[in-house]
Simulated scan of single mutants.
Amino acid sequence: MSGPRAFISFEMEDRWARDFLVEHAKNKNNSIQFVDYSVHDPFDSKWKTNCKIRIAQTAGTIVLIGPTTYLSEAVLWEIAETTRQGNHMFGIQIHRDRNYRIPTGLLPRQVIRWNFDSIVAELESWT
């Protein structure tokens, strides 16, 4: 059984956390089939159109929360689009020992600490 597909929303300075999450998912024995639908191309005129399509192809969005995530226009738009499409969503504080400001549109109860078992449990709750 494979798990749901997730769009990953993150601030570019936190790309390392996205890469780590994707690699960690590949190396763990779990029921999650992790598919990365984040946008890799630089911000351009087609960005929102591409994001809408990619978000629609997923069960939900994972928001990686770092020091400046709450300021990112792109992340805020991706959160709003996920909500508009009625998809699931949760956030992950990218450092276990720090709390960063939660971006608008994401509720505190939707945010977890960086723990792969917790991430898998959240993703499995989408099915």
Rank of each mutant, 00 (worst) to 15 (best):
N115S: 14
H40E: 14
D117N: 14
P108L: 02
R54E: 10
F43H: 02
T69H: 05
V120L: 09
Y100H: 12
G66E: 09
K26Q: 07
Q57T: 12
L106Y: 04
W114V: 13
F116G: 12
I102M: 04
Y100F: 15
V120F: 07
V22D: 01
F90W: 00
L76W: 00
I32Q: 01
D117C: 11
A80V: 04
N30Y: 11
T83G: 13
K48Y: 10
A80E: 15
A25Y: 06
V63Q: 09
T61F: 00
Y37C: 03
V35A: 04
A25H: 06
Q57I: 07
V111Y: 00
I53R: 11
L76A: 03
V120Y: 08
F43G: 01
A74D: 06
T69N: 05
D117V: 15
F90Q: 01
L64R: 10
Q57H: 05
F43P: 03
S72H: 01
R109E: 15
T58Q: 01
N115D: 15
N29V: 13
R54S: 08
I94T: 07
Q33P: 04
K46S: 10
A56S: 15
H88M: 05
N30K: 08
Y100R: 04
I79R: 04
D117F: 11
T58L: 01
N50T: 09
T104M: 10
I94D: 05
R109Q: 14
R109I: 08
M89E: 03
I65T: 06
P67I: 07
F43R: 01
G60C: 02
L64T: 12
I112C: 03
I53W: 13
L107P: 00
F34P: 00
T61S: 14
H88N: 05
R96H: 12
E73W: 04
L64M: 06
D44F: 00
A25C: 11
L71N: 13
P67G: 12
T104G: 08
I92A: 05
H40P: 04
F116S: 13
T83S: 15
F34D: 03
Q33H: 05
K28S: 13
C51A: 14
K48F: 05
I32L: 07
S118C: 11
Q57S: 09
T68E: 15
S45T: 03
N115I: 10
T61V: 06
E23T: 07
F90R: 01
A56C: 10
Q93D: 11
V39P: 11
V111F: 00
V22T: 05
P42L: 13
K28Q: 14
W77F: 10
G105K: 05
G66P: 12
T69C: 07
K26D: 06
I102A: 04
H24S: 15
Y100A: 09
V22F: 06
L107W: 02
A80G: 10
Q33D: 13
T104P: 08
R96T: 14
Y100E: 09
